[in-house]
């Protein structure tokens, strides 16, 4: 018998051969498939979360510590410390505890009323040449010490002052930023892979401004409209992962890139977590790239 005939014999006998499959094979396949999807789900999540966590840690390490100027530590009546200056209560100020110089509505100086004297005080950090132990009044500060470098941030001209102070909300480190909103996800076509996301979102960034002479709490409020394109991949009947990218439109628009991990609780309700990066279109923003985590619930409307 030739080799070709030998091979052909095996081929004819076995090509169409079928073997019985173990009864529990389908359950084993299904279980393994679910395991893989779950693993992929967490790997994607870990992959997206680690850079963000790393960025946040790096930012914490890089951000210099803000020197604490505790007004309470200095008696309001004492003028012996050059960088602590008592300020009389303002009768023109509409907001208690707010210095008239910084009467911009977006700017709140951290004046702390002195409990002993009932006199608001503010810590003023002057430049080095002012570091003599000479007590200063506010008038002295204005007239005798024309601060050149800080003057660009605190000009005495009121109109310019307001404008400059309004820009100050872009400086400083964000403190407890948060946002909340509603999003509407509209599937494109029948594939349900691509969707458009829009809606409205409120964002608050309460920035700690610690420039020149004082520390401020300067909240920034934004109403944003997301315009995002989403690509979704189903990992299992209950889990999916999406990449969302696009812009957030507001008076300070930004680019957005997020990775959405969603788990369906029932046919209507899902929960999701979405680590994301945002890049702010602002030349004044010292750190335009930010990372954060959003989470929420999603309701799916039935057709």
């Amino acid at each position: 018998m030739r080799e070709k005939e030998f091979d052909q014999f095996f081929r004819d006998k076995l090509t169409e051969h079928s073997s019985p499959v173990p009864e529990d094979m389908w359950q084993r396949i299904q279980g393994k498939k679910d395991d893989r999807r779950a693993l992929a789900f967490w790997w994607w999540g870990l992959g997206a979360g680690l850079p963000i966590i790393g960025l946040l840690i790096a930012k914490m390490l890089i951000t210099p510590a803000i020197p604490s100027k505790t007004p309470a530590a200095t008696p309001a009546t004492s003028h012996t410390t050059s960088n602590t200056h008592p300020v009389a209560p303002s009768t023109t100020s509409t907001t208690p505890g707010r210095h008239p110089k910084f009467s911009n509505k977006n700017l709140t100086t951290p004046y702390t009323p002195d409990t002993a004297q009932n006199t608001p005080t503010v810590t003023l950090e002057t430049t080095q040449r002012q570091s003599s132990h000479h007590p200063l009044t506010l008038a002295d500060l204005k007239n005798k010490f024309p601060i050149k470098a800080p003057a660009s941030k605190f000009p005495r001209d009121s109109a310019k002052n307001k404008k400059t102070l309004a820009n100050l909300d872009l400086y400083g480190s964000p403190d407890n930023p948060y946002n909340a909103g509603l999003r509407l996800l509209i599937p494109l076509g029948n594939g349900k892979k691509f969707s458009v996301i829009t809606g409205v979102q409120y964002t608050s960034v309460n920035r700690k401004v610690h420039r020149d002479s004082a520390r401020f709490q300067n909240p920034r409020h934004l109403i944003e409209v997301p315009l995002l394109l989403s690509y979704t991949k189903e990992l299992s009947p209950t889990k999916s992962i999406s990449i969302n990218t696009g812009v957030f439109l507001s008076n300070q628009s930004s680019l957005y890139l997020g990775l959405n991990l969603q788990k369906r609780l029932d046919p209507s309700w899902s929960v999701y977590a979405e680590p994301y990066y945002r890049y702010l279109f602002s030349r004044k923003e010292p750190s335009p790239l930010s990372a954060a985590l959003s989470f929420g619930v999603r309701y799916t409307f039935k057709k």
Partner: peptide, 20 residues
């Protein structure tokens, strides 16, 4: 060894699979 075609015809599929 040289195998005669008749010898192969007596083998069924399971036997062939076992051999392989």
């Amino acid at each position: 060894p040289s195998i005669a075609p008749q010898a192969l015809s007596t083998l069924d599929e399971d036997q062939l699979l076992k051999l392989i």
